Amino acid sequence: MTKNPMRRRAAVAAVATVLSLALAPASFADGGPVPERPVSTTSQDPQPLPTSPAAYELGEELAGLAGKELEVTFLAAIIRHHEDAVEMAKLERERGADADVRARAENIVSGQQDQIDRFTRWLREWYGLTPQQAREQAPAEAREEMAAMDQETRRRIGELRGTPGGKDFDVAFVRRIIPHHSAGIVQYLEVQSRADHHRLRQAASAGITAQQSEIEDFRARLAGGRK
């Protein structure tokens, strides 16, 4: 399927507008994000890892969908996305040293597990689908982008598991949860404004607000603004 240039520009503009409130300035070329800043490998000035390009591509795919197809594809993607966030947050809860970061990780576990349960229930009630069935019904290009995001996320979780516990683990977790949240915001954008179900639009709006707030706080921690 050929990409629609107008859809690409609209999706990129929406992403840039929303993420600019929480993220460092980013530039876009032909619809793809350029990493926000060179990623530092030093403990003195750690930077978040870049958001996966596949997240922006999935945002474009969602921008071209509507009705049932938009909702089913989004729910399939966000449920898996939240499951990965819960997995990372549980690791921080178990192995991190910073009490506040661990507390925020606990909030991620409880809040995103609640959304996983709610979204799974809505899929069943509205469309009679499990998350796996919803994923199988998604358009081919959306499935490709979801698979690319899965691969990237599994790699980053593997790196996190290989990080020693303690303060280094806190930093490694924060560097990975920031781009993960950014990818979640990209997915939320289309359903926030165009989902058929009002409850889903409300949930998307709340999700954007919550993840923006956490991104801002975690970025401040990396920059040394909060101890």
Score class of each variant (00 low, 15 high):
A99F: 05
D168P: 01
T120S: 05
V15K: 07
G225V: 02
S213P: 01
F119G: 01
R8T: 15
S193R: 15
A22F: 03
H81I: 00
R135H: 08
R7S: 00
F119E: 05
S40C: 00
A195P: 02
E92Q: 15
V72Q: 12
Q211W: 01
S193C: 05
E216P: 00
H197E: 08
W126C: 04
L222P: 13
G32P: 06
T51V: 14
P131I: 01
A89M: 04
A89Q: 11
A22P: 05
V186F: 05
T42P: 00
R219N: 09
T163Q: 12
H81D: 03
S205G: 13
G96Y: 06
D84T: 06
R155T: 09
F173H: 03
V171L: 10
E152C: 07
E60Y: 15
V174H: 08
R201V: 06
V191S: 02
V101L: 09
D117V: 08
G225H: 09
A223K: 13
L200R: 04
A54P: 09
D45T: 13
I178K: 11
T2W: 09
L160F: 09
Q44P: 02
A54L: 10
R156L: 14
R135V: 02
V18M: 09
K3G: 09
L58P: 11
M6A: 11
A13C: 05
A76K: 02
G128C: 05
G162Y: 08
F74N: 00
A77T: 08
G111W: 06
L91T: 08
H180Y: 03
D170S: 12
I116E: 02
Q44T: 15
L21G: 14
R118F: 00
F119W: 02
A24R: 14
S110N: 14
S40W: 02
N107F: 07
I157A: 00
Y56I: 11
I185Y: 04
R118A: 11
F169W: 01
A66D: 15
G166M: 03
P48F: 01
R161Q: 12
S205F: 13
A54R: 11
V186G: 11
L222C: 10
K227R: 15
G207M: 04
M149C: 02
G67K: 06
P5R: 02
I215M: 12
A206H: 10
V186S: 03
D114N: 11
L65A: 07
I185Q: 04
G64A: 13
E216G: 11
R194F: 01
W122C: 05
F169S: 07
L200Y: 03
P35Y: 10
V39D: 06
